[in-house]
Design a binder for these strands. Structure first.
Length: 218
DNA sequence: CCAGACGTTGTT
DNA sequence: GTCTGG
DNA sequence: CCAGACGTTGTT
DNA sequence: GTCTGG
């Protein structure tokens, strides 16, 4: 699962990474973020056919058949095992791939929150699907969900599911190679490295709290 | 055939 | 829209 | 994911 | 308990 995460670097550092790896020179997103929750905008990358683009998308995928204001149908996560055999994901799989930029995600075990990071504590990319609908005013609303897989390695200690974590090479393949991601095997390639885990304060429980205390080890 | 669900997560 | 259940 | 609300009426 | 909001 993945229902909360962080992108706690300052904007300058994130933009420097985006320029270097995706030739994207800005992202319309306020940083740092210590506690990003469903319902809020998440920092994403997409490929528009010729170049990468970075921007915010609302977390909570609303499939086309639920594309009306009154429907509460929305997904925070999509199981990687479901891709390719659920019609609702077919079109997004072809035309709605995205990457969610993060430097850590939160996991609760016995009500205690932990922050999971790469060993080098730098950026990783969570693949997702996005789609759009028009709200009552005719405005286009983009929504996205993050793809999960069965936990591996040390993650199994605290949870049976985890977000797929890609490096930037795999992330580019996800965005640009239509066949990529069609088999479960491919999701396992990029998480060989051990993960770093910090027990953090309960203040992260509330999405209202979005400050450095959320990521501070305790 | 039509009606109704369609997803994920955790918790009991 | 498309699949499943009745 | 967790936290917090969960109802109705009339009046401004 | 269950739904909604962040």
């Amino acid at each position: 699962m993945c229902g909360r995460f962080s992108l706690a670097y300052d904007k300058e550092t994130v933009v420097e990474y985006l320029i270097r790896t995706f030739a994207v020179d800005d992202i319309d997103y306020d940083l740092p973020r210590y506690n990003i929750a469903p319902g809020q905008d998440v920092p994403t990358l997409i490929f528009d056919g010729s170049q990468y683009r970075a921007g915010p998308i609302k977390w909570g995928f609303k499939p086309f058949f639920a594309a009306k204001e009154n429907s509460s149908f929305q997904l925070v996560n999509i199981r990687s095992e479901s891709l390719g055999n659920k019609p609702m994901f077919d079109q997004p799989l072809r035309k709605g791939r995205c990457l969610v930029l993060a430097d850590g995600f939160y996991e609760w075990n016995e009500k205690k929150p932990y922050r999971i990071m790469l060993e080098d504590q730098r950026f990783f990319l969570m693949p997702g699907l996005w789609t759009s609908y028009r709200d009552d005013d005719g405005a286009s609303i983009h929504t996205a969900a993050i793809i999960t897989k069965p936990s591996d390695g040390s993650m199994r200690d605290i949870h049976d599911r985890m977000p797929v974590m890609l490096n930037h090479e795999a992330g580019k393949k996800w965005l640009t190679v239509p066949a990529y991601g069609k088999t479960d095997r491919l999701w396992q390639l990029h998480t060989r490295k051990e993960l770093h885990r910090n027990r953090v304060s309960d203040i992260v429980n509330s999405p209202e709290n979005d400050n450095e205390a959320c990521i501070k080890p305790r």
